[in-house]
Computed example of a mutant assay.
Amino acid sequence: MSTRIGEKKNKVNVGGETKGLSQGQIVRKRFLGHTAAVVSMVVFIAVVLLAFTSIGYAGIPGWWKWDYVETPTLATPNGAPTWTLPFNFGDHPFGQDRVGRDLFAMTMRGAQLSLIIMFIIGTIGGIIGVVVGGVSGYFRGWVEAVLMRLTDVIIIIPLLILAAVLGTVGSELSGRGTFFDAIFGGSAGIILLGVFIGLVIWTGLARLVRGEFLSLREREFVDAARIAGASNSRIIFKHILPNAVGVIIVNTTLVMASAILLESGLSFLGLGVQPPDISLGNLISQNQAAFATRPWLFWWPGLFIVIICLSINFIGDGLRDAFDPRQKKFNAKKAAEPKKPA
């Protein structure tokens, strides 16, 4: 009887026919119903495409005529932007630095490296945080004690200082003929910087996931699965993890947003991406003395940092609403009903 009721609830009438919505359709409709997340997704994709297609990447040429290392003559006094409203971009729409390098090309290169580091940090930090938090929250006992004490040790060390030390180690290991250069080539320093920061940024996510697992492991549906003979791995992946996905997604995106800010801060201090490469924070650091006379050197790198961080946060919020089965904002029956003709 309960099975038939459950099946009936998952079915809706569309055009006179009984049709059920799959989980993927529900997730898609929920996400598309989140206006801020959809707009942020479009903006974020536009930033990624602009950064990687304009100046090219990994030997693939781009459509922009200047490279981030070229030094053409100054097109305007003091290297001011040639962009005039509405659509007259000129040769250097973002302006030029004191030696003539095109700021648009440098900003795109900085966005490339910042995005790469952000994804590396988010992936590594997210995986470690979910594994440590989930294992400690589900198994409890000595496993929880060991993992949480390890988390506490990393938490008490200031993140910026620890990331700076590890980032410096990564810079020292790259560019000196080590096996890191043989594996990663010219991107060794960037990859290592992202890996090292990812190894220390997961602590907050681990604590939140642990709390969520502690709560969910005591729920009735977990007890029912355990009585039915389900293994620990099945309970974790089939029952607990889907209900914790909202917390995981939101906080992973927060980790990614804080990662790009941390990388920018390290590069601003000279401990992140090293010259001749460029990151958005590195650009701000290089031009900090020109803030009063050439403020456009700060506008564009800072604007891209803000856009990327806000987009990631809103996308995470939309994914949380879409994947979390406890969200009540979406009505599957109402969404599947045909619209009445005007």
Score class of each variant (00 low, 15 high):
Lys334Asn: 04
Gly79Tyr: 12
Arg101Asp: 05
Leu283Ala: 07
Gly141Phe: 12
Ala335Trp: 07
Ala228Asp: 08
Thr168Asp: 12
Leu208Gly: 01
Ala37Glu: 13
Arg326Asn: 14
Trp296His: 15
Gly189Asn: 14
Arg98Pro: 00
Ala163Trp: 10
Asp277Pro: 00
Ala244Glu: 05
Phe291Asn: 00
Pro61Arg: 15
Val69Asn: 11
Pro81Gln: 10
Arg326Asp: 07
Gly20Thr: 15
Ile5His: 12
Ile284Tyr: 09
Leu199Arg: 04
Gly24Gln: 14
Ser114Val: 10
Ile248Cys: 11
Ala225Ser: 14
Asp223Pro: 03
Trp296Asp: 05
Pro86Arg: 13
Ile155Cys: 00
Arg294Pro: 00
Ile248Phe: 11
Lys29Thr: 00
Phe237Asn: 02
Ile156Ala: 14
Leu266Thr: 07
Ile26Lys: 14
Asn251Gln: 14
Thr82Ser: 15
Ile60Glu: 06
Pro61Ile: 10
Gly185Ile: 13
Ile201Tyr: 06
Ala164Tyr: 03
Val43Ser: 02
Asn243Met: 02
Arg140Leu: 11
Gly56Gln: 10
Val39Lys: 02
Ala182Asn: 06
Ile55Asn: 04
Ile308Gln: 02
Ser114Lys: 09
Ala335Arg: 01
Gln327Ala: 14
Leu205Cys: 06
Gly272Met: 09
Ile55Pro: 05
Pro276Lys: 08
Ile121Val: 15
Arg219Leu: 09
Leu160Asp: 03
Ser174Val: 08
Ala244Asp: 02
Leu173Asn: 11
Phe330Met: 11
Ala230Trp: 05
Gly79Asp: 10
Leu269His: 10
Ile26Tyr: 00
Leu310Met: 15
Val131Trp: 04
Lys333Met: 09
Ile128Asn: 02
Leu103Ser: 03
Gly133Leu: 10
Ala322Gln: 06
Ala289Leu: 12
Gly137Trp: 08
Ile197Gln: 03
Ile278Pro: 00
Val27Lys: 04
Ala37Leu: 12
Lys238Pro: 00
Arg226His: 08
Gly134Thr: 01
Glu218Val: 06
Gly79Glu: 10
Leu297Cys: 06
Gly204Ile: 03
Lys329Thr: 15
Val169Phe: 15
Val135Met: 12
Ala58Gly: 01
Trp83Thr: 10
Glu172Ile: 11
Pro295Leu: 03
Ser264Val: 08
Pro81Lys: 13
Ala322Arg: 05
Thr252His: 07
Gly59Asn: 07
Ala224Gly: 13
Trp300Lys: 03
Leu254Ile: 10
Glu17Cys: 02
Leu208Glu: 02
